[in-house]
Write a protein that binds this DNA or RNA. Structure first.
Lengths: 232, 232
DNA sequence: GACACTACTCGTACTAAGTACGATGAGTCA
DNA sequence: TGACTCATCGTACTTAGTACGAGTAGTGTC
């Protein structure tokens, strides 16, 4: 057998760059998770030896920073001409979709201290949309905090659902974790699992639209009240 | 000098147990964060050699599981006799306080697959409170998801704030990260930072009560609407 | 009081991961 | 052709998790 396998042939010079490293890392993390992402495994994934990676990034932290910045860049930014509610809603939905594609990213999005262009640009566009709403500054701050808290928190819970977040897996997991508990303990948990979670059409994701609209309704109503009080 | 230092004297037999290991780990993580928590450092903290720890726990994962279970146990459970809104609110506030004491815990709370007695007991009491509300099952599911998403997401954002979450630190951080950006880029971000975040009385935490009550109001209103529609 | 038994503690050492340092070698241009 | 550059990699050091088994302090028994 001739050794023409990708893995065995030395890597072609010049075919790597910072962007390919970061995208390779994201691909790997999407498939395997962030914990198994090591320099050595990433090198394998890129068809390269470990130390080659350090030609393009300072260290592993810089890889994570870069990955998160690319993820922020995937999020749809609120367009400049929409009503605030439309823009904020579209961006929230997009954020949630992006976090579904990259579940490993959720806990990292807000905790990095080296924001890149993607991160900053995203936040700038978001704040801009809130400003255009004409709401009082304090409402803007509340709106920013509450919507993001909800979306990130929801994404965290979704990420915790066993794998595909589509039936089957969840059913098995629920049956394996909740149902075999010491009989009689946790009756409400067991009841809820049987009565609701294990029912045919169950879909955790439905609570997302419900919650998002509930929050946006609440913000709008509170803003209207505020405005009325100001006029009086 | 006689060697009477704690650190130098061998550890007194029998003074360690699983609980002390877990509480020691929590103390350490509260002070230093979860990443610096290593078996060796935990051993030092406990005045013991690394391998001693393995007499009480199977491995590091089991330590994390145990820590999270203890954290769940710190959360106030909704009392059985309150109105649902009171109970849910108190528990949400308590959850947020607990997550402020243990910021490292937030991303782990919902992602462990080996729940212990504290975790299960907490969730059972929570579900019980929702059941007592008499709301339709689907509302209960939405309520569970939305309130927790908000609280966990908010805690995540709070944890990301630089240290003490009390002035000073935040001011410095905002000035160091946001203000020195390439001039003219991100004008809205800079504006918001200067106009709001860097103002004297700024307190991110104020958005918590605002958001929580907004969500609870929304849930109550939606439930009332639902009930009215059912009666008709 | 001597001995054996148990439970706790620890020394040693192996594996995996991040990465410093400097060697190698492929292109490129004079 | 030879020198220079820079992408790639080999080697090796450090830190972390932890398997294995040796020591040892108490405890109970005769």
């Amino acid at each position: 057998m001739t050794d023409t396998t990708m893995a065995e042939r030395p890597h072609v010079r010049g075919s790597l760059n910072r962007d390919r490293v970061l995208h390779g890392a994201i691909e790997f993390a999407d498939r395997e998770g962030i914990e198994p992402l090591t320099i050595r495994r990433l090198a394998d994934h890129l068809g390269v030896k470990p130390m080659t990676i350090y030609h393009y990034v300072a260290n592993k932290e810089a890889i994570i920073d870069g990955m998160i910045d690319l993820v922020f860049d995937e999020i749809e930014r609120p367009p400049a001409d929409d009503a605030w509610r439309t823009g904020i809603r579209a961006r929230a939905v997009s954020l949630r979709e992006v976090l579904r594609r990259h579940p490993w990213a959720t806990p990292l999005m807000e905790s990095r201290t080296n924001p890149g262009a993607g991160t900053l640009g995203h936040h700038d566009a978001l704040v801009a949309c809130w400003y255009r709403s004409g709401l009082p500054l304090e409402f803007i701050a509340h709106g920013l905090a509450v919507v993001d808290a909800f979306v990130y928190g929801f994404a965290m819970q979704e990420a915790a659902l066993p794998f595909g977040d589509h039936q089957g897996d969840l059913t098995e997991a629920a049956e394996e974790i909740i149902l075999p508990l010491p009989t009689g303990d946790h009756p409400h948990l067991v009841r809820f699992t049987q009565e609701y979670v294990l029912q045919p059409g169950y879909d955790f994701g439905r609570s997302f639209d419900f919650g998002l609209d509930l929050i946006l309704d609440g913000l709008e109503a509170a803003a209207a009240r505020e405005r009325a009080a100001g006029d009086a």
